[in-house]
């Protein structure tokens, strides 16, 4: 799933090293939103805004199959066993559809109509698939694709949610942090901390972190949604902050990259890249790998914030990069996917 875990974790606890080599390039027919690729065994799964879900061989980059739908698949699918779950925002319709597709048999095992758009990433647990629509309806499906229950949270949601234990947490366009108990199927709290949140939440050790439209990054207590600290980055944040054991890293639409002390929100460094940061980066123990919509990939030294090297690309960087089996995968507009092999580091 997007961010590997329900808490949304983008950290790889090893060094990236100095050397990358382009392994292969491939492309899909449509472009992407700021989502990511999903991997299972030797297969990479991608979804695009032209309504297709693809499977690629990760060694060669060659296509292994695709499913076409009329609409857009703007969020990352989730995988379990041989089932791929994805959501299609239907063309010319005011609803979306969630599909459960068995890619071994080529059959759809289930599908459900969802009113409105679904641009918020899915969460997979051991026994459930969770989806919150933009209308604020939280859906719980079992792994057979049957709807167990749904809950109207009375919110408008354009935020990547996160899950810790039994608590499902998201931000709303009215600036509230809402927590839902999955077992009790009810809203535990709604705490207004901002005017508008349209980014994503990451959770660690009982704390949640989220950025808002005004450019504030908040650290809040998962238990009650109360703000522990906040930091003003100066411009709208739409990506999810990433963190290691001590520090937290976030970028905003003005192209500014920040490193903050996770405990108290004090700034370690700032890098004004001049670009536009709307994609969640990938963090290693030595580098922050940050795609820039302005056709670049920055490799930022996490100690001092300096850009150690850059890759200039042909297209606007869209996907949140993913590390899998020694390779980092990037995605650009026009549907292009780049696979860079790590030659150094201590992976």
């Amino acid at each position: 799933m997007f961010g590997k875990t329900p808490e949304r974790n983008f950290y790889n606890d090893f060094t990236l090293g100095d050397s990358l080599k382009l392994k292969w390039e491939t492309d899909t027919k449509g472009s992407y939103k700021n989502t990511s690729l999903i991997f299972l065994d030797e297969i990479m799964f991608a979804s695009d805004l032209a309504g297709r879900v693809y499977a690629f061989n990760i060694e060669s980059g060659k296509g292994a199959g695709e499913e076409k739908n009329k609409g857009a698949v703007s969020i990352a699918p989730v995988l379990y066993n041989s089932i791929i779950v994805y959501v299609v925002e239907e063309f010319k319709e005011k609803y979306s559809t969630i599909y459960f597709y068995d890619y071994y048999t080529g059959d759809y095992i289930n599908e459900h109509i969802i009113n409105g758009s679904c641009g918020n990433e899915l969460i997979k647990t051991d026994d459930a698939i969770l989806l919150i629509s933009e209308n604020g309806i939280l859906y719980n499906y079992n792994l057979s694709g049957n709807e167990r229950w749904k809950l109207d949270t009375q919110s408008k949601v354009r935020c990547v949610p996160a899950l810790t234990g039994d608590t499902f947490i998201f931000g709303s366009v009215t600036g509230e942090i809402t927590a839902v108990s999955l077992s009790r199927q009810k809203v535990i709290y709604k705490n207004k901390i901002s005017d508008r949140i349209q980014s994503g939440i990451t959770i660690e050790n009982g704390r949640g972190y989220v950025g808002d439209d005004a450019g504030y990054l908040y650290c809040f207590d998962i238990a009650d949604g109360e703000v522990i600290w906040s930091f003003d980055t100066g411009a709208k944040i739409v990506s999810i902050p990433v963190m290691n054991d001590e520090d937290l890293f976030v970028g905003n639409l003005s192209g500014d990259l920040f490193s903050l002390d996770k405990k108290n929100g004090e700034m370690n460094w700032l890098n004004e890249t001049g670009g536009i940061i709307n994609t969640t980066p990938l963090l290693f123990s030595d580098y922050l790998v940050q795609p820039d919509l302005f056709k670049k990939i920055h490799f930022v030294d996490i100690e001092n914030g300096e850009i150690d090297r850059q890759i200039e690309t042909d297209g606007r960087m869209k996907l949140s990069p993913v590390y899998f089996n020694g390779v980092i995968y990037f995605g650009m507009d026009k549907g292009e996917i780049l696979a860079y092999e790590l030659l150094g580091g201590d992976k």
Partner: peptide, 13 residues
């Protein structure tokens, strides 16, 4: 330009 790239969440390259 810097203001509009934020408003539009988009950049003219």
């Amino acid at each position: 330009f810097d203001e509009l790239k934020i408003k539009f969440n988009h950049v003219v390259t």
